[in-house]
Design a binder for these strands. Structure first.
Lengths: 124, 124
DNA sequence: TTAATTGTATTAATTGAGCTAGTACAATTA
DNA sequence: TAATTGTACTAGCTCAATTAATACAATTAA
């Protein structure tokens, strides 16, 4: 369910954070759905519970999830933060592409670049 | 001349690398122009000469500059400013798209976004 | 020729973020 | 009551980045 790159420069707890947002934006995780328990997810991923806890803690601070001791961690009902972030990144891409146009870069080159990224290129 | 964020997750030597490319793309640094000596730049930025050296070494490996013992390091003259700008914007787009992937934005949406920009939409 | 400047190389030590390890506590659930 | 859950805390480990100290070779300027 969660995919982690253990050799990435990006910390595991941040990758976990991004994973949750990603899954929510895809509709895989829905509001009030329970996330895997800290210990269980840590065991599945072969990492320390503290690392998972840190990810959950950050997600809760940002309003993406809510946690209750003894019950678990759940997806927040108001996940509009995802939409806000999508808007932000859309703007960033638009601006970057506009610069590319000014430099005379062909549209096809950009499309190929995007394709490369989606195929898993330029990682870590 | 160079701006470094000492608290960034990105290593100083990489920031220095990006700085040189940026300055060339702006036309501030021109081909065959000499870069600050390793020791001098290190002192100005309050960092270790080895860190500057590492940045210069990487820049030379990528053909961005050329270094001569006893003389100094100089901007490569092989490619004109436009090529440097393309290099910079390509990196920027790649990073932005990578963020989009994390958020679960579909590839088609990005392609459509690019298409819109190239058709003249989203003008500033 | 001599001294200063330059890039380069090497080895060792230091620093800090990230992660692990172990334990404990409180609230909830079965 | 016992198991599960999130949370908190301290200590230690790992690794990349950076620092530190030196040395060497080529160039430049005196």
């Amino acid at each position: 369910m969660f995919s982690i790159d253990y050799h990435s420069r990006q910390p595991i707890y941040e990758q976990l954070y991004d994973n949750v947002i990603h899954l929510v934006s895809l509709g895989v995780l829905t509001p009030d759905e329970q996330l895997p328990p800290v210990r269980q997810l840590a065991m599945e991923l072969g990492i320390n519970p503290n690392t998972v806890s840190k990810a959950y803690k950050n997600l809760e601070n940002d309003g993406m999830i809510y946690s209750v001791v003894g019950k678990g961690s759940f997806i927040s009902g108001k996940s509009d933060i995802t939409e806000w972030k999508k808007q932000e990144i859309t703007t960033k891409i638009t601006q970057a592409v506009q610069e590319a146009v000014k430099l005379g870069i062909e549209q096809q080159q950009i499309v190929e670049l995007v394709d490369t990224v989606y195929k898993g290129g330029n990682q870590s």
